[in-house]
Amino acid sequence: MSKPILDVIGLTMNFGGIRALDHLDLDVYAGEIVALIGPNGAGKTTFFNCLTGMYAPAEGEIRLTSPETGKQTLLAGLKPNKITELGMARTFQNIRLFSRMTVLENVMIGRHCRTRSLIFGAIFRPRKTREEEQDTVDRSYRILEKVGLSGQVDELADNLSYGAQRRLEIARALATDPFLLLLDEPAAGMNPQETAELVDLIRRIRDDGHAVLLIEHDMKLVMTLSDRVFVLDYGEKIAQGTPAEIGVNAAVIKAYLGEEVLDEEMP
């Protein structure tokens, strides 16, 4: 097997005296959908924050390897915008769109790190700048079409329905051309119909060549969608494997349902 595109080794994160992540190992390969699950407070979002450079972990290594160039980068100390430039983008559990900008503008912002023009370009508008802007608009339209928002490009992000806002967040992340997309509870608060559409969208994103690492509480979604599952509890990895393996893992059931349940049901 080729090298993983994301390789996390021994990641540890402390908040004061509390160990939020404890020597966590995790890897994601190109073309995979990997789920990260665990009870509330298990450290899943903290893990995402470490990956994207918002937190500085106490110990451990995070390596990102571009599947195209094979170039490996150690993420330690890199700023969030650099990490996004390398090819890893994320969405948030509580939606964080630029609410006073239009749908199209939100996606165009995602193209920022793939485009170059600055003050000089803005003032003199050479051909390169104009071509770049046109390319940004074209790509943004294509992405919006992919997530099913092409009918609402000029709407303010704030005015979209909840499900649409979630899809716009994904669109904005996709605009940065990531080879790895991190989704933090993408199905949270969605109705069954919206969830079904989301499953479909995530599959299409994977088929387009983006690997996906997602945090999710919706077990049905996790079990149908993911190739592999990692389970966290109190900052430690308690299990990893295929959805089928995780479904019957005693440690996982214990973490989710408590010890007594396990004793009663499995004598």
Partner: peptide, 15 residues
Amino acid sequence: RATAQDKTMALLVGI
């Protein structure tokens, strides 16, 4: 405009 609205998010989309 994006930075003015949400600096952290701006960083995360690669600005």
